[in-house]
Design a binder for these strands. Structure first.
Lengths: 144, 144
DNA sequence: AATGCTCTTGCGAATTATTTGCAATAAGAA
DNA sequence: TTCTTATTGCAAATAATTCGCAAGAGCATT
């Protein structure tokens, strides 16, 4: 059993260190939890998952670390339903979300056309977009 | 000085009454506050504004009433920045929002093209859209 | 207008999600 | 190893919203 981390975690650590962010056990555990999550975990879920690697992680540290990572753009914060934020590593290309209102499942999608239209609309209104949020809430189409 | 309410409030009252919702002083005051607001007030702001008409309104009642109105589709709930919900009467045609990140101003816009694309994307993923949220966060374009 | 059944209200306490103060601890440079 | 300073865990503090409950209205009926 090696202690070797994944190249992804390794890269993130180096980037962070380069910016003067100290690499603590807890932060590595949190980054790992995020890196190993294919979904969009809440702070509470990230706490549970990172504790498997380092049981000393506390919820306050999860929040503090997420805050740093979100500010740096390393992590994306989403607020899908209004019941707490959900996070994901920002190592994938930009995408928006479709939330299944029945199951809570989150599906990622991209639409360059929509992005273009957004920029166009903002431009017409005299603005430059600094961020945007597009969420579709849907029900699985059935043929009952 | 007449006590006559606006036709809008009047209509809303009738609709609500028809659905068995009791029309209380507080509810009328809250509806008026919403009807007279061109912006997107928070629950706290709606409390202040409705108290001008009926000083007995409490924050709990504002929330309870908003909840009823949102469920009925009479009022729309937005969560722009994550610091509390903002509400607006749903008597205007559908629109999305562009939030000025510097001033907090909210500009409404519509884009039939984006709506179409959203439906198309959902359809391709096997879903029917039941709701959606599109928010653009922008900075006023300047020529400094 | 008075009655009564039921819904609504105000109040304060309870929740939920997140942030903060503080003393103890650990990173990382020397 | 040592030292300086950032980071941590814990518990208490916030912020936004919801809830329990007894008192107080709606409104359909008389």
């Amino acid at each position: 059993m090696s202690d070797a981390e994944s190249p992804l975690i390794d890269d993130l650590e180096h980037e962070l260190r380069a910016e003067g962010v100290r690499i603590t056990r807890q932060r590595v555990a949190i980054l790992s939890a995020l890196a190993n999550s294919g979904d969009h975990p809440s702070a509470e879920e990230i706490l549970e998952r990172s504790r498997k690697q380092d049981s000393s992680v506390s919820l306050a540290t999860v929040y503090r670390t997420l805050s740093i990572l979100v500010d740096r753009g390393t992590v994306l914060r989403n607020e899908f339903d209004g019941t707490g934020a959900r996070f994901e590593l920002a190592n994938k290309p930009h995408h928006d979300h479709l939330i299944d209102v029945d199951t809570g499942d989150v599906i990622e999608f991209t639409s360059p056309r929509i992005e273009e239209l957004q920029a166009e609309i903002a431009r017409e209104l005299g603005y430059d977009i600094v961020d945007h949020r597009l969420e579709l809430y849907g029900k699985l189409r059935t043929r009952d």
